[in-house]
Design a protein around this nucleic acid. Structure first.
Lengths: 100, 100
DNA sequence: TTGGCATATCGGGAAAAGTCGATATACATT
DNA sequence: AATGTATATCGACTTTTCCCGATATGCCAA
């Protein structure tokens, strides 16, 4: 993954918010009946409602974040759950410290 | 300075390169007769030649980086010298670690 | 197997960024 | 004062990003 693409993924207010909300799903989202926040993350619909943008936009934003290794996705039934990708986030932090 | 603007400033290959070149001016640029790299930085013309883009583009890129507090500028006579803004860079690193 | 949800993808219109050449500004030299 | 040089700003054009609604896909339940 190229540095520029990572920074582009972060160059949007809504995407930064999503990343932030996912730090504390239980505080930022209503309970999910069928899945544990800590294990699988938060489903697209909840993120969409919180963000207040269209379903298609949020779906695309999530895939931009995923391509940048900032979040990861798990499909369970008809839901896709997203959570922070700690490995990618740590790599980013290292990259900033060493290469920037 | 808003987070989004900082990431936008970093969302461009040439601007990332400039930031990198400025880490070691003596290695990346030919000697400047009238100014010390370490004190004031590198003048726009040298950065422009190295980047191979137009003068106007580089001038704008440098001001984008400056608005994001990633570089600082010093005017000396007819030259403007740019160097890395360590304070801003460190703040960015902190911000990534705490808020992202 | 037909509907009904959740998500993804597609096509498009508006806004922003990338990049240039031309021009303006500011300083230095003659 | 006139010219030359370094940088900044302007206007324009192209490409990318931001978002949307519409449609497609995949899964589940009746």
């Amino acid at each position: 993954m190229d540095q520029v693409e990572i920074f582009k993924a972060l160059s949007n207010k809504t995407r930064l918010q999503i990343l932030n909300w996912l730090k504390a799903p239980a505080e930022n989202f209503p309970d999910q009946p069928n899945a544990d926040f800590e294990n699988v993350g938060v489903c697209v619909g909840q993120i969409q409602m919180k963000a207040g943008l269209s379903q298609s936009t949020i779906s695309e934003y999530l895939s931009i974040l995923q391509r940048a290794d900032l979040v990861s996705a798990t499909r369970v039934g008809q839901w896709t759950y997203y959570k922070r990708n700690m490995e990618g986030l740590e790599k980013l932090s290292e990259m900033i410290n060493t290469e920037l």
